[in-house]
């Protein structure tokens, strides 16, 4: 406990907690939609695209990597969605191609052009998140906070539309809801969430951060609203616990959070079984 209080005096620890909680909140919001709609594979593919962009940003020595990764990921999200709507290549095949391609390209770029002495360390960090506590520059923190708030506000604003779209897109479309427009919004928000979450857990673990809280909440609750609220709470609690544990035990922050998410899932599964 003393150790924790001592750590809290450092601004970077406080930053890490604030940013961690906000990112966890955002990433849980669209979990249900991602799990239940074909968007899930897009989420997976995008995280790899974000990795590729991150590699390029690292090599070109951009001071703020999000300036590159964010637009690239958003554009890929939109392209993937468009492609999914009207193409002969099956959606998942296209995503698999793009995501594996981006992964290979990113690693290649990092290996060939990197000036850093520890290439495999850098790659590992990008894939699995930083090995110790998050060290974010102040501008990164502000950007994270602003983007997170934007995601939460957008989500609340579009909540009912996202429900209608997730539950039955054809019905919404047939009765005159502008489904393409809202799909576009959802894709953009997912892209933003992925770029944000990459800071926290690295690009390979993003899906876990997004999907586990939603799956856990679905074990216990049966209305969309209850599941959404519950998954937000689970996600925030898991992130807090994970970050604190990682500070105290010196474990890698991303995988610690995901491990807590897995434990939470097991507990919720148990509760769900008992309830039934």
């Amino acid at each position: 406990m003393d150790k924790l209080i001592m750590y809290m005096q450092y601004p970077f620890v406080r930053y890490a907690l604030i940013v961690g909680v906000l990112i966890a909140l955002c990433s849980s919001l669209l979990g249900v939609t991602l799990v239940l709609k074909r968007f899930s594979f897009i989420g997976d593919g995008l995280s790899h695209v974000a990795f590729g962009a991150m590699a390029v940003a690292a090599v070109t020595g951009l001071s703020n990597k999000m300036l590159l990764t964010l637009p690239v990921t958003i554009i890929s999200a939109i392209l993937l969605l468009k492609n999914n709507e009207n193409s002969k290549v099956k959606g998942d095949a296209a995503v698999a191609m793009i995501s594996v391609g981006a992964l290979a390209f990113g690693y290649l770029v990092m290996n060939v052009f990197s000036t850093s002495s520890n290439v495999s360390g850098d790659v590992c960090t990008t894939l699995f998140g930083s090995t110790s506590i998050l060290t974010l520059a102040e501008t990164d923190v502000y950007l994270c906070v602003i983007l997170s708030i934007a995601v939460v506000v957008l989500f609340i604003f579009f909540y009912n539309k996202i429900f209608a779209l997730t539950f039955d897109e054809n019905f919404a479309k047939a009765t005159g809801v502008k489904t393409e427009k809202y799909n576009f919004v959802v894709a953009t928000v997912i892209a933003v969430i992925i770029v944000l979450a990459m800071n926290l857990v690295g690009s390979l673990l993003i899906s876990a951060l997004i999907i586990f809280p939603a799956l856990s909440a679905m074990k216990m609750f049966k209305s969309f609203k209850a599941v959404t609220i519950c998954s937000a709470i689970i996600s925030v609690l898991a992130a807090l616990t994970g970050i604190i544990v990682s500070i105290l035990m010196g474990t890698p922050v991303g995988s610690t959070i995901v491990a807590v998410d897995v434990v939470a899932f097991a507990i919720c599964h148990g509760i769900g079984m008992v309830k039934r």
Binding site: N160, F163, F167, A172, T175, G176, F221, F224, A226
Partner: peptide, 17 residues
């Protein structure tokens, strides 16, 4: 199969248009 949605939420979503 797993969609969490209450009857009321679904009926209400008909007004989305």
């Amino acid at each position: 199969k797993d969609f969490p949605a209450s009857v009321y939420e679904i009926v209400l979503s008909g007004f989305q248009n």
